[in-house]
Design a protein around this nucleic acid. Sequence first.
DNA 1: TACTCGATCGGA
DNA 2: CCGATCGAGTAA
Length: 175
Amino acid sequence: MALARWLLGKHLVRRRDGVVTKHVITEVEAYDGERDLACHARAGRTARTEVMYAAGGVWYVYLCYGVHEMLNLVVGSRDWPAAVLIRGVAGVSGPGRLTKALAIDRRLNGAEAAPASGLWIEDDGSDVPARTVRATARIGVDYAGPVWAGKKWRFVIIDGAVAAVDERRSKSRRS
DNA sequence: TACTCGATCGGA
DNA sequence: CCGATCGAGTAA
């Protein structure tokens, strides 16, 4: 959780065709362990979730709904499946849109979050004040049941139009 | 081998 | 509100 929160305000850096772009991370979600019924690793090790058991620092990219690539950073120690879903960066709201905007797909699955892979994290030292961070329930995980779906493991920087728009989206979704 | 169901999005 | 679109996971 702390690590997910820590990622807010950090730069997601993409190099593609020699061009480097930096994007401030504005929205993340944490998935933590097999006990977390919203986590893909809830059923243990499988072909897809194996990468989540690696030591932190590699990407976990999968196809969602047969349409969207989802970008996660594997975190934690080896054999503890945990990842942080990068849901948004400044100017881009939504995990599916994010990967589309940065041309990220499953070819990056298992790759190191380092310059060599073309996708990595940079910390420019800037601080994200606690009062600009909101913790909410994770999106689209009702299947996990009230306890786990209710965990406030989604973190959003509320200082900005992007976050405001997203809040409206998530509210209209519940009913 | 069959069947189900998504860590979403955009359009009706 | 609903369809798109496909692969992982599960049951058989």
